[in-house]
Design a protein around this nucleic acid. Structure first.
Lengths: 191, 191
DNA sequence: CATTTCGGAGTGAATGTTCATTCCGCCAGT
DNA sequence: ACTGGCGGAATGAACATTCACTCCGAAATG
């Protein structure tokens, strides 16, 4: 087993367990067991449980961003860009329930709130392609004239809730229902 | 201090602490301290931490239901009933941030998922005035023809997200923004 | 090529801390 | 003086983290 294999085993084990039992419901011993490594081994790769938790978020975020293809500005209408983003995000979440549940845990924790604040209020000079859709949408008068953060909340809120209820088995999100969901989100924010 | 006073102190202390630190981040000792009560005293009123957590949910739920006046069926249009419900719910949540945060914690926990399943799939013969708005809405052709559970997710999702972001200070939900939020929810589910 | 030395990855029992829960002595009200 | 509610030290379990050790492959030595 190569070095990265072991790290990956730990990451996957931690992701599954935290998705199921939450941060505090998951002990390092449980993670070590499922990853089939010694308890001490985890600390060769991650300085502490906190570091591991934040590292897991980065892994999930990277995978999500890699999957989301945010259609480039010039070629499509705001509406198309939004629908495309929403659908690919919702599909990703229901295809990766473990990741969805991890994100849910994370964003409702002190770690996550800080991350959200940074992401949303966009501290970095880094361009955020997702936020851009909303700023463009407002500028071009295609979306309601609300704070961008509010538009995010209004559109991602239902996406997250629908993903959750699908994962919990309250209903099944087939292709048609996915389309209807994202259309509904668009109706909620379009001018 | 009367008997119920002490119980109330414990409930309030637990609510505040759990809202801030989560279930597992809140120890019984912390609750006892904030309630200005001995650690053992909590166990005179609640058999265990689990029982306390569930009891807290019942308290919050009761207060929320008491505040929500679900306008009676015959006198108003579906749209009015929905707007009324949405606004009073959102107002309640931002007026009681502690309760909002508690509910968020609770619903994302194993306890809460079970509760939601029962509430949503309506096991009890008990009439659920909230669900009724949606079943009526679909029947009368005023809402999209989706599963009632999906309509709930689509409309409460953004309400919860908006409440959260307001409480986190990402923006301020004034009366106008509240109205716009609920209007937006309605646009998302109306036919 | 054979043998020894070395270093770092991996381990899991040991450690010290924190937690939920218990239990016993105290005291206020009768 | 009796009693039931109360406080908080005591208890044992569970936890995150550490550390002395093993193991193995590779480099150094002959």
């Amino acid at each position: 087993m190569s070095k990265t294999d072991k790290r990956d085993e730990i990451i996957n084990a931690a992701l599954e367990l935290i998705a199921e039992h939450g941060f505090h419901g998951t002990s390092m011993a449980m993670i070590a067991d499922r990853a089939k490594v010694g308890a001490g081994t985890i600390y060769r790769y991650f300085d502490s449980k906190d570091v591991l938790i934040i590292e897991l978020f980065k892994v999930v975020e990277a995978k999500l961003h890699a999957t989301l293809d945010v259609t480039s500005e010039s070629e499509h209408s705001i509406q198309d860009r939004f629908l495309h983003l929403g659908k690919s995000m919702l599909k990703y979440l229901i295809d990766n329930p473990t990741h969805y549940k991890y994100l849910e845990q994370f964003f409702n924790s002190p770690y996550g709130v800080e991350q959200r604040r940074i992401k949303l209020l966009g501290e970095k000079g880094k361009e955020n392609a997702i936020l851009r859709i909303f700023t463009d949408g407002v500028e071009q008068g295609e979306m309601k004239d609300l704070p961008v953060v509010a538009l995010c909340a209004l559109s991602f809120g239902p996406i997250m809730t629908m993903a959750r209820d699908h994962i919990l088995g309250f209903f099944t999100l087939d292709d048609e229902l996915i389309t209807q969901t994202i259309d509904s989100c668009w109706s909620g924010i379009k001018k």
